[in-house]
Simulated scan of single mutants.
Amino acid sequence: MSFTDSCSSCLARGIAPADTRTRGDRRVDGYRCPHCGHTWAVTRDLTAYSDIHARRAHHHARKAA
């Protein structure tokens, strides 16, 4: 699963993590904006993202049928 984020300082979009660590069902992505140098971290509960992707796949399959 690949994530990108937006810089809260200069609003640049599509920034890939500079560092990623997984701790059980949580993932911590560390970011550094290549435009302004701002740094931040985001913690995500991967079980929540798995549920969202499963619902989207089911929704798309229903539309196609």
Rank of each mutant, 00 (worst) to 15 (best):
I52G: 05
D25P: 02
R13S: 07
H35K: 10
A48M: 11
Y49M: 04
H35Y: 11
R44T: 12
V42F: 06
R23L: 08
A18F: 09
P17R: 02
T43R: 15
G30W: 02
H58Q: 13
S50Q: 14
T20C: 02
T4A: 05
S6K: 11
A12Y: 10
I52L: 15
A18K: 13
H59I: 08
A16S: 10
C33H: 01
T47M: 06
A57M: 09
I52H: 08
R26L: 08
T39L: 10
S2R: 07
G24Y: 01
A64N: 13
T43F: 09
G37R: 08
A41H: 12
S50H: 12
S50T: 13
Y31L: 04
M1P: 03
R55N: 14
R26W: 07
T39F: 02
R23D: 10
T20H: 00
G24T: 01
L46I: 04
H38P: 02
G14Q: 03
R26I: 04
I15L: 00
R21V: 11
A61S: 05
G37D: 04
R32Q: 05
I15D: 00
A18S: 09
R21L: 03
R26K: 13
D45G: 05
G37C: 03
R21T: 11
R23F: 07
H59Y: 11
T22C: 03
R56M: 15
D19A: 08
H58E: 15
A54K: 12
C36F: 07
R44P: 01
D19P: 00
S2F: 03
A65N: 07
S8A: 06
G30P: 00
D25Y: 01
G14F: 03
P34D: 07
R55T: 13
G24C: 02
T22P: 00
T43L: 12
T43Q: 14
D51A: 15
D5T: 06
S50F: 08
R26T: 13
S2Y: 03
R55L: 15
H35G: 06
P34R: 07
K63W: 02
L46K: 01
D19E: 12
D45M: 05
R26A: 11
A57L: 10
D51N: 08
S6D: 15
S9N: 10
R32E: 06
S8Q: 09
R32K: 05
A12H: 14
H38W: 13
R23G: 03
M1L: 14
D29W: 02
D45C: 05
T20E: 07
H59S: 07
P17K: 02
T43W: 11
C10I: 10
A65T: 10
R55D: 15
V28K: 02
S50P: 01
I15A: 00
D25K: 04
